[in-house]
Amino acid sequence: MAAETASVPATSAPAETERLRLAKAAIRRGKLRTRWLLLSPALLTIVLVGLLPLSIILVYSFLEPGTYGGVRWVFSTDAYVQFLFERDLFEDTLTFNPAYLEIFWRSVELALLSTVGSLLIGFPTAYFIATRPPSRRNLWLFLITLPFWTNLLIRTFAMMLILRDEGVINIILMKLGLIDQPLVLIYTDGAVFLGLVYSYLPFMVLPIYAALEKLDFRLVEAAYDLYATRGKVLRHVILPVAKPGLVAGCILVFVPGLGAYITPELLGGGKSLMIGNMIAIQFGNSRNWPFGSAASLILMAIVLVALLVYVRYAGRRRGHG
């Protein structure tokens, strides 16, 4: 036994052979190079065509609008001033104009309301799916995911068919004799709200389900065993587990809702303008690119705040677990 170890001359092994060290360094360098080589096509594409444009609109927001779209390379903060004030062309005075502020406020309000609406439907649905037997769960998940992959434009169009003056709801109500005149449903803020809930509902259900899937129902058993009622089990056991999913779901509904374009375009009336449409208009007919750029940046700032809230919350969770 000891003879085994003693049979090796003690002088034969230096601490680390030069050959080995060089080989290892070469492998490490090679791996690093390969990794960045593999990453560069995707990263370059996204940086050049995804991130670079954002810095361009940052620059544009401090320029003057060109006569037929585009910009004139003259520094100006007018794009931001224009949010709150209207410049009188003849007297060059500024008067307070809340029109754009109202659009922003309406957008935030509609996005928030549709988030709450999705939450009220989405949470019970996610919980219901999570308590199905595993075989049935997959089918439910598939049915919830499918609309998410279906063209948003077409789904909004389907909503138009429901809400129109000659739409399904009005026809049914008139056939039943409940109303004589069609109700004004479409081209209202209410229609936009319904459209947003309908569009982004899957975004709410899926993350909540993902969180609830991990719920250990022995905890629920323990809570009932310790005299909790259904309501208390929901509040003290189920909701805390679902919380990360709830937060993620709310962000996922709020952010696209805030920047929505198709929904207000098709379901909202001329008065139900949201930020998304306003930005699109600035780059289209009304052709004030700097103002559109500034509006984009403000929209991004709001989204960023929402994401920060999420990241901070997610970070805190990780600290606990």
């Binding site: 019970p124 077409i154 429901i162 629920v220 929901l234």
Partner: peptide, 29 residues
């Protein structure tokens, strides 16, 4: 049933209805 919460199953079926009814109308017409 300790997994049940009052009204949740009805809401889930309503959710499915909301998601699919408009598409169904679109396809039918």
């Amino acid at each position: 049933d300790l997994k049940r919460q009052t009204g949740f199953s009805e809401i889930a079926w309503f959710c499915l209805f909301v998601l699919y009814a408009p598409i169904a109308v679109l396809i039918v017409f």
